[in-house]
Design a protein around this nucleic acid. Sequence first.
RNA 1: GGGUGCAUAGCUCAAUUGGCAGAGCGCAGUCCUUACAAGACUGAUGUUCUAGGUUCAAGUCCUAGUGCGCCCA
Length: 879
Amino acid sequence: MLRTMPRTFDFSEAEGRLYNWWQSSGWFKPEAAPPDAEPFVISMPPPNVTGALHVGHALFSTLEDLMIRHARMNGRAALWVPGMDHAGIATQLQIEKMLHEEGTSREEIGREAFLARTWDWKEKYGGEINRQLRRLGASCDWDRERFTLDEGLSNAVLEVFMRLYEQGLIYRGPRLVNWSPGLRTAVSDLEVEREEETGKLYFFNYPIEGGEFIPVATTRPETILGDTALAVHPEDPRYQHLIGKMALVPVLNRRIPVIADEYVDREFGTGAVKITPGHDFNDYEIGKRHNLQLINIMNKDATLNENAGPYDGLDRFEARQKLWTDMTAAGLTIRAQDHTMVVPRTQRGGEVVEPMVSDQWFLRIKPLAEQALEAVRDGRIEIVPERFEKIYFHWLENIEDWCISRQLWWGHRIPVWYGPDGEIYVGKTAPKGDGWTPEEDVLDTWFSSGLWPFSTLGWPEQTPDLARYYPTTIMETGYDILFFWVARMIMLGLWFTDDVPFRTVYLHGLVRDKNGRKISKTLGNVIDPLELVDKYGADPLRFTLVTGSTPGNDINLDADRVERNWRFVNKIWQMSNFVTQNLGEDAESLPPGAPPPNELDLPSRWILSRLNRLVSTVQRLFETYQYGEAGRQLDDFLWGDFADWYIEVSKHPLYQGTGAEKTAARRVLLHVLDTSLRLLHPYMPFVTEEIWSYLPHEGQALIMAAWPQPDERYYDDNAERDMLLLIDLVRGVRNVRDEYSVEPARRITALAARSDSEHLIEGYAYLFSRLCNVSALRLLDAGEEIPAQVASVVAGDITLYLPLADFVDLQAERERLTKEQTKLQDQIARSQGMLGNDQFMARARPEVIERERTKLADLQASVTQIAERLSALDSATTR
RNA sequence: GGGUGCAUAGCUCAAUUGGCAGAGCGCAGUCCUUACAAGACUGAUGUUCUAGGUUCAAGUCCUAGUGCGCCCA
């Protein structure tokens, strides 16, 4: 006997239970598949160890879990490797904040104590996200979970650094870099965000030796103190006579040359620019061209230093004000006007980035970039959607060397020691002998995450996992980290493993609020995925996220959609409830699968045709990563075809059929439900698994059940067409009932005109009784008169007459039919136009022409029926 | 400045890549029909941003423009 399903799905009870069962049964591990199974591997983008789950995580984990579950059901050795990123800056900031609240600081407690504190914190509170991912159903192999600062991964990082150093690709030196004064570290170009802001453009007179002035404009007056030249355009007539003369830096009176450079834009500002090679990237380049002196006027916290003379010790913005005041007093200033400009800010702290010269480590990236470009160009790596390939190419073609050192403590320390005589030692452990000082800097967080796909599998050791599961299959992540992460994984993967790290890159978009606004705390539109999971369960959220998204496009998440999909989950539960209740005593001994088509009635042939076409469509959509569309089609089928029509219609054979008819209907119901649950499982793992446990089935669990294959024997165009005709008739009757306000409970009768399709009426009259409360439906006898007070329903070549006596208003009936007729005639005209067009006949695909012919025939049949009916009405009223 | 994406019903989004513009939500109306009121049924709502073009056929392809967004400089 089958267990009886509860009336509703208690997701809060079931989700945890099912998850633990799946995991403890070992089904999240690739070893659950046969040893010769083809691997399918995803490296999970490791969330920050400090993070809390947000909808972005919900989206990626749902998509990746969907891919993994689909692969697993297809018999692949599915491996999803989870992990965490130490997230250098983010984590360090968090711990520093804690220390600050305790009244101390990292400098005060020192490096060692700081790291100990951070590890403590990590052990206690870190990785909350990975616990939360379980609630969403993420079926990853937790035994293989990795952390970027683990011993193995750290070893991989050091190994990579050493090899790159030996290959001459890593160098150290003073360079102008983006400096974050608050964090007191360099950051890479990618970590700088440029926003348009309103600031001021300051105009002033730059004194020239001999008493002349050149008017100059700047947005950052404090940098005047670091000027080492004035530049004008070589062909600018205004300043020709001054080229080669010397100017005097205001207040400091330092002598600097007036130079000519084509870089100067004659149209902008005054056509003359001050050059500060120590604090501006463009000026840095000009400085190199003209061999200009480079002066650093700032300390690491962006206060001014001794080079700023009287401004030594002031904050950069205070210095800006004070210098301007002093210059005004000296009569040098002209005006300060509002100005829209692009201000660089750090991705993390949000403070203004200061270009500053400092000693940093760089990776010579071009040789790696070449390989990375080639791998995508020749198709060894495919990016979905394709348009991101262009963006990828453009970035790599214009790439600059990567500043990989950070002046932080939390991270992989650069494995370098400086000897007493300035020599450099690179190695995993300190060199022997005294007098060696270790490098203080750590590596950019992305340096270690760039190794993720292979470091998590054991590299540089040749582990069995590395041999079996590398290269990974697909990299699923957000397009916002295409450069930060994806490109670097490709570069480092190719360089160190001689193979691509993954074959496909699938990029998803950002999750926004329901109006398309970015989700942020300040806007107050934060959507907490766990709240939605608490309220509706994980399945509705997952389904909403997947069906609302297309590759590479942002998704607007509306909580109302989650609620709607919670109702969909309930709907699936209720239809399953119906099926299990109607399988009969011997449910377990029903033969598996559907009966052959020739033993089936029309509705069953129809639903199985629809089902198998759906399986095929879903397969096609999965192959092209269109998971959202596949989900929507499953929704349409289950609710719109199976529940609304087949289940209702099946009640006839189930309640009134012969034994054979009962069995056939039961087998079809079970087969359709079982197949649908399989297709739906990657989207809604919990409810589908739970329902499946109440169905007769082979195998232990749905998570390990086989993915359905389309069975073309069930494709049946005629059944689909005939069933659609019946459905149209039922809808027509319902419509008439509604228009004439016939109470739903009132049973009516109907007559059908004779036609080529009359067998449908004879065979399936019961449908009308069940679906639109027509108690008796029979064909007209030859020569039988049609009653006067009837409403007519036309579909294809069938006309139904509903003798509704008092309900029918003949005038209204005439209007209704005329409206219908006009609509049909428009369509006929259009169709005839096409079929009468020689060009169309000559060039359209044959099946398109055939479809058009069939359509026209149906339309003409219908319009003939209506015309007859209208003329009958006319004669009835004129008589 | 260069690149890129989006624009479809009141809202949020689809449309087998060129073949009759659909769904959910919302709205209006009817109904507690024995799986489901977390439900069923019916209905209204479209210049597919604008202007050209290609094609037998354009929401879909091309050109230009408008608006919004993102990326890079």
